[in-house]
């Protein structure tokens, strides 16, 4: 009953077949799921995609078991500080990264299996008042943290044994960094958004802050998800978690904005809007597909380049969706409920 009015209000309508149910798992003792994700895991010469579920005090790793079943392999118990987020680490294997904290992130930990000791373990990578964190290709993690006096932006090179091999300080902007996004095809470039609604660009090799570009006063506070460099322009996918209905089509869930890094000028490219009514929550982006949970409890998926909704996953009789995350490598969409149910869909 939620999908129908959404479908009717969208210009070209979501294609029902674009999300195909694959499998479901349920964490039986979890009553407050906080995040879900998927990681590549290699064991006994076989590399497979495993699901990770996070509750406040525990993170579980799930292995696929035919047909369409999942078995819990291990649970890491983290009882001192609540888990608040799983941090995706692209292109890594046998490694889960989690952020822990109360209102904001206080710790970042790696969860892994150690073949030396034949046991699962976790290790601390970073502490502080952490405002934003992102995992990048080549086993790198960037975070921004703030003390009363200053902001620190740091890149950590992770090791396969769960430690840090090296650290690189990046030049901080004056405003607090609220989100980071990797730049597709440019491993040395990093994009971020600030509390002052600017997009900033770093050179990760030198740590230089290359450019600060204002997003525009007409946009609500923006969060960067992903960026692509093409033909001398930087295309940044932004979402507006506290967005209001500011456009004729409704509330914008995602926007693609083109920036000219040479001049700092910008121009809107596409807007992926919800029809009037349901507000969006913070979403997730994979390649050119965006997904977000709506306040109605449905999950909506957009083609960000065309600016159109391609699929809607309505809340079922079992309850509302609370989490939507893309699995790595185009493996599909993970939708989770607070009761610990996770469903995997092929997209």
């Amino acid at each position: 009953d939620v999908a129908e009015p959404l479908t009717a209000a969208l210009p070209d309508g979501p294609r029902e077949e674009s999300l195909q149910f694959v499998s479901e798992l349920k964490e039986p003792w979890c009553s407050g799921a906080v995040d879900v994700g998927a990681v590549w895991w290699a064991a006994a010469g076989c590399r497979e995609l495993r699901v990770v579920t996070a509750c406040e005090s525990a993170v579980s790793l799930w292995q696929p078991r035919a047909p369409a079943c999942w078995a819990r392999v291990h649970t890491w118990h983290l009882r001192e500080i609540p888990v608040i987020q799983i941090v995706p680490l692209p292109d890594t294997c046998n490694l889960v990264c989690v952020a822990l904290g109360e209102l904001e992130i206080g710790e970042i930990r790696l969860l892994l299996y150690s073949s030396d000791t034949d046991s699962f373990k976790h290790s601390l990578v970073k502490t502080g008042n952490i405002k934003a964190v992102v995992g990048l290709k080549d086993w790198r993690l960037v975070s921004s943290s703030r003390t009363m006096q200053e902001q620190q932006v740091e890149m950590v090179f992770l090791s396969e044994t769960g430690g840090s091999k090296d650290r690189q300080t990046l030049m901080p902007p004056e405003e607090t960094v609220t989100a980071f996004a990797e730049v597709e095809g440019m491993s040395e470039a990093l994009v971020g958004t600030t509390a002052g609604n600017s997009v900033v660009v770093w050179n990760l090799r030198t740590g230089q802050l290359l450019r600060k570009m204002h997003v525009g006063y007409s946009y609500p506070v923006s969060i960067s998800h992903r960026a692509y460099s093409d033909s001398g322009l930087l295309f940044v996918v932004l979402s507006h978690p506290h967005g209001k209905e500011s456009e004729p089509c409704g509330s914008p869930a995602f926007r693609v904005v083109a920036f000219n890094p040479r001049t700092g000028r910008s121009a809107p490219v596409t807007s992926s809007c919800l029809p009037p009514g349901p507000a969006g929550r913070r979403g997730d982006v994979w390649d050119t597909a965006g997904a977000a949970v709506l306040t109605s409890g449905a999950v909506a998926v957009w083609d960000l380049l065309r600016g159109c909704c391609t699929a809607v996953l309505p809340p079922g009789p079992a309850g509302q969706w609370a989490l939507a995350r893309w699995a790595p490598g185009g493996a599909g969409l993970l939708a989770g409920r607070r009761d610990g149910t996770v469903q995997l869909y092929r997209y």
Binding site: N203, P261, T263, R265
Partner: peptide, 23 residues
């Protein structure tokens, strides 16, 4: 969007800004 909206475009913006920005 056109070049007139965004100003002159450079394909080597990353290298150019890295040369110009403070170290």
């Amino acid at each position: 969007c056109s070049e007139s909206d965004l100003g002159p475009i450079s394909l080597n913006w990353f290298e150019e800004l890295s040369t110009e920005a403070p170290p």
